[in-house]
Amino acid sequence: MDLYPLFNSIRISLISTLIVFFMGIFSAYYISKAPRIIKIALDVLFTLPLVLPPTVVGFLLIKILGPNHLIGEFFLNTFGVRLTMNWWSAVFATMVVIFPLMYRTARGAFQSFDTTLSDTAMTLGLSGSYIFWKLRMPYCKQGIIAGTVLSFARALGEYGATSMIAGYTPGKTATISTTVYQLWRIGQDDLAFKWIIINIIISAVVLFFINLIETKYHHKEAQNGSLR
């Protein structure tokens, strides 16, 4: 059994989760400080990929990154790089699809932050970046970790947009989800089942991990609650 799809899926998910981790957190942080109208508009825009069908996301991505379109053409002409049909092309698709998950969990976590902590920290002479990394992030740690793990799990399961922008080339762009589809299409059900079991195990482990974080989170909240 060729394990390339497993390796490729995990590679794509890790890279996209890492990028979206920072993008989601900073968007959530700066949107919380934006004027109300901008906040509402950006919130809708950033959450949209969560409810759109992945095929719509894939279609739009091809219309932007494809070799005959806007950015895709520019990259092909300038750097000689085709943005679609590579293993890393799937990163674009998974990034767009998981961004709302990271953004919304980070935003929820930041909203629970007690602003008197940052107010007081400022009067103590602590800088804005110190307050962000040493106070706000640890305070919102559990929420952000849960969001990151959930984003990773969703990236692993991404099929629609990925198959459109990266296609299915065995040993090159194949991921677990596209492999399962391909194996079913050509009637290799027994091999498809093996991949399905692998997929279920990974997802179950991830969900178990999220559960663990959440119980810990509630436990800590109860402790902190007694002093507020």
């Binding site: 007690d114 008197t116 902590l117 107010d119 007081t120 920290a121 009067t123 740690k141 902190n224 002093l227």
Partner: peptide, 12 residues
């Protein structure tokens, strides 16, 4: 120096 009502000690 500023001391708010809830003392604002940093919980972590």
């Amino acid at each position: 120096g500023y001391l708010p009502q809830n003392f604002a000690l940093f919980p972590d």
